[in-house]
């Protein structure tokens, strides 16, 4: 399959505000796709369509289609629980639950009724290993997740997703609450994860998009301006607007 997520003529309104305008794009599997653009351009809104988190916003309406593995996720027969299991989300501010480290990672498995006991223990260990937290935290699994550092918390939030074996990781400015060193570490982690997972990252940091992603989409006032390989977008964009934006001349 050559696209994991396919967006077709997507429009989204918050009451009367037209937040996403007729967007068509596709996300390649096992790669990192960056969505960049100025604040308020609809990039986070689009990301929140991929796991239907916008459903929680009162007054949001949508038209068009989003296909995940070829299935229309806005079809009424879509099982939201299953969709969100497959399409996980990492938020701007790390948001571990006020539970222990172990309970945080095991949370998704409980929610989805996956086998308990040793299987959960293995899943927790594996997920923490995958984000590089296991060695730091293996003796502190009962510690409250709120006492971790910001970077550890964000890694924990990623582990929490990995424990339920998702296919896509949506990341909404995952490093904006982190310092530069922690940001570098999380970016390295993203690259590792992209071997197995499809990652879509929203960022207002153009250097970050250039460093980690393979494809980049530029949004402007709800419209998709240009979508191409990251190298093309940053070195040889086909539109003047993209060039101006990535070279910092406006926005």
């Amino acid at each position: 399959m050559d696209s994991k997520i396919e967006v077709r003529n997507l429009n989204l309104y918050y009451d009367t505000f037209h937040a996403v305008k007729d967007v068509t794009m596709s996300v390649k599997p096992q790669s990192i796709t960056a969505i960049i653009g100025p604040s308020g351009c609809g990039k986070s809104t689009l990301l929140r369509c991929f796991n239907r988190m916008n459903d929680l916003v009162e007054g949001s309406r949508i038209s068009g289609q989003i296909l995940f593995n070829g299935q229309d996720i806005y079809n009424s027969s879509m099982d939201l629980t299953q969709l969100r299991r497959k399409v996980g989300m990492v938020f701007q501010r790390p948001n571990p639950f006020p539970l222990s480290v172990f309970e945080n990672v095991a949370f998704g498995r409980r929610v989805h009724g996956l086998p308990k006991g040793s299987e959960t223990q293995m899943a927790v260990e594996k997920s923490l290993c995958a984000t590089g937290l296991w060695d730091e935290l293996k003796d502190k699994l009962n510690m409250s997740a709120l006492s971790l550092s910001a970077e550890q918390q964000q890694r924990l939030c990623i582990s929490r997703l990995l424990a339920i074996e998702p296919e896509v990781l949506l990341m909404d400015e995952p490093c904006s609450a982190l310092d530069p060193i922690a940001t570098g570490n999380i970016e390295d982690l993203m690259k590792e994860l992209a071997i197995n997972y499809t990652i879509v990252i929203v960022t207002h940091n153009m250097q970050q998009a250039a460093r980690v992603s393979e494809q980049t989409a530029l949004f402007w006032l709800g419209e998709l301006v240009e979508y191409d390989s990251t190298v093309r977008i940053f070195e040889n964009p086909s539109k003047k607007q993209t060039e101006d934006y990535v070279t910092g001349r406006f926005g």
């Binding site: 929680l56 969100r84 299991r85 996980g88 639950f97 006020p98 949370f107």
Partner: peptide, 25 residues
């Protein structure tokens, strides 16, 4: 609100979110 978002985004139902996260917090 971030707790609720986090739980919903993991696929928790509203009731699961309520009793597993919000009431605990």
């Amino acid at each position: 609100k971030s707790y609720r978002d986090g739980a919903i985004a993991l696929g928790a139902t509203r009731w699961q979110t309520t009793h597993m996260v919000i009431l605990k917090a």
